[in-house]
Structure formats: structure tokens, C-alpha cells
């Protein structure tokens, strides 16, 4: 039996758990360390912050195109998707288990649904260490199987997890999604409003929105914001197999790309597209 597809549902309106379900084949979703196990962050309530029973990360096994898969979906609404000790360990730990399977010759398809401001400040260095372990696991795992990242919602993907996105074999984005190391508000706070007005959405999405990132090759697929389209893009990414060379390993290409930039000149998304398109020829 296949689930009826309901039109006009936005992927970004779904919770992390519903997103994981949407990416797996109908009826195959099985959650690990779900809410009733209450493996919540031990660090939040001592600091006066209400924890969530799954610490904001859903780990789900199931299948994609008949192959075993694992989805790691971050819940944007809880603490801005911030990565703490538990949520970080859920992601890193699941990727490490997937690595074990891959080494044993039975690869599991890993998908990261990234919606996060980065490290959760209340857990600080615990989040930092966890994210380093996520990076390590992605790099080890993608020797065997593509690691696919999805950045769908307007919260976007920032901080240490934006580096994780940079390490993914394939990155799928919607127009609403955005990807950057530093969030616009932090840039404005640190460098001043002249550097970037964080409320200027047009400019923010011009730099780091899904359309721009795909246009310059820092993400691979621009998809519509509906569950079927995102799920299709994920299936197609796995069907494409491992990339010949991962983006984060293309050192000569990006050193050349940076070399042609005149950093004293006014630059925007469109100009960058044409500069780098020329460099490609």
C-alpha cells in the first residue's frame, strides 16, 4: 500500500520526524532513540532551559529505493536546531554505525536533513567535539557510499554543520534554504551593518540561498519545497553513485576560483555566477 500523496504540503512545514518519514519508503520508518526513551540533554535544565525528549534530532532507519537507509533529521524549532552533546552524538553515532556496515560490505544510505544554527551555546565545547566527530564520520563513510545532505527550510544551515554540509557528497537545497558558515545576524553583530544588513532578505538569499549555491556549484540540486520533490532528489543522488571527486577535495578548482576574485570590487550573487562561469570555460 502506498501513502496517498497530498498536494500543496510543503516539506519545510513538516517536523523533523515527518521529514524523515517523507524521505523513506512508505511503511519502513523505524525510529531509534525516539522520544519515549527520553534521552534528552542533561545540560539544559541545570541552565534553566526546557529540554526536548529527543534532543531535537530524529534518527530513523528504513529504505530508499529498496536499499537500507538512515535519516538524521534536525528539528529546527527546538533551540534553533542547535547541536548539543546528545543531538550531536545521535548524528555522529549513527554515521559511525553506518560506516561499520559499509566496511562490512552492506552499505546503508545516509541522509542528513540539516536545519541548524550550529553549536548550541549552552553546551559549547561538547557540541564542538560532537561536530568534529560528525565531520570525521562523514569523511570516512563517503569513501563507500554517498552522504546526502538536504537543506530545505529558511532557518538554513550554519556554523559547524555548514562545514558538514560542505563535506556531503551531494547537497540538495530549496529556494528557501540557505547555507553559510556565519549567520547574517552574527555577521552584522561582529562586522557591522555596512558589511551585511541581516534584515535585507534579498541580499542574504542572494549570497547564500539555495538558488545561488546551486548556480555556483556549492550545492548540487535545487528542488521544489514539497515532500515528493525532495524525496525524488534524494533518490536521484544515491542513484548517481559516488562523485568522481568530492567538492571539498577540489582544491585546485577552488584556489583558481578564488584567485580570479578581486576582493576590493563590489560583488554580488549574479556577478559571481558570471565570473565563475567564465573561469569554467
Amino acid at each position: 500500500m502506498s501513502a496517498p500523496s497530498i498536494p500543496r504540503v510543503h516539506f519545510t512545514e513538516l517536523s523533523a520526524r515527518e521529514r524523515a518519514k517523507a524521505l523513506l519508503e512508505a511503511g519502513t520508518f523505524r525510529e531509534l532513540l525516539g522520544p519515549f526513551e527520553r534521552i534528552e540533554s542533561p545540560h539544559l535544565s541545570p541552565q534553566g532551559v526546557v529540554p526536548q525528549s529527543d534532543d531535537g534530532v530524529v534518527v530513523a532507519r528504513g529504505t530508499i529505493d529498496g536499499s537500507p537507509a538512515v535519516i538524521l533529521a534536525i528539528e529546527a524549532a527546538f533551540q534553533g536546531g542547535g547541536i548539543g552533546e546528545v543531538s550531536g552524538a545521535k548524528i555522529a553515532g549513527a554515521l559511525e554505525l553506518a560506516l561499520g556496515d559499509a566496511e562490512a560490505g552492506t552499505p546503508v544510505r545516509p541522509v542528513l536533513v540539516l536545519e541548524t544554527g550550529g553549536i548550541r551555546l549552552q553546551e559549547a565545547n561538547l557540541g564542538l567535539l560532537a561536530i568534529a566527530e560528525v565531520h570525521a564520520a562523514i569523511i570516512a563513510l563517503r569513501r563507500y557510499v554517498p552522504v546526502v545532505g538536504v537543506i530545505a527550510g529558511p532557518l538554513g544551515c550554519f556554523g559547524g554543520m555548514s562545514i558538514a554540509a560542505g563535506l556531503c557528497s551531494y547537497l540538495i537545497m530549496t529556494r528557501e534554504g540557505r547555507l553559510g558558515l556565519n549567520g547574517p545576524a552574527v555577521i552584522e553583530e561582529e562586522a557591522g551593518v555596512a558589511e551585511l544588513d541581516s534584515r535585507d532578505n534579498r541580499r542574504v538569499w542572494d549570497i547564500m540561498g539555495g538558488e545561488q549555491r546551486v548556480a555556483v556549484g556549492m550545492a548540487d540540486t535545487l528542488t521544489e519545497d514539497d515532500p515528493d520533490s525532495v524525496a525524488r532528489a534524494v533518490r536521484e543522488a544515491f542513484a548517481a553513485g559516488l562523485p568522481e571527486r568530492h567538492r571539498s577535495a577540489k582544491v585546485e578548482r577552488y584556489e583558481t576560483r578564488l584567485g580570479v576574485i578581486d576582493s576590493s570590487q563590489e560583488l554580488d550573487g549574479q556577478k559571481l555566477r558570471s565570473i565563475w562561469a567564465e573561469e569554467r570555460r
Binding site: 526536548q52 528539528e75 524549532a77
Partner: peptide, 12 residues
């Protein structure tokens, strides 16, 4: 979800 203006409920 434990998001701004929201809550999560675990009912057993």
C-alpha cells in the same frame, strides 16, 4: 515540539 510558543506532549 519544544519550540517558541509550543510544547511537546508524551502521553502513555
Amino acid at each position: 515540539v519544544v519550540g517558541s510558543g509550543d510544547l511537546e506532549i508524551l502521553l502513555e
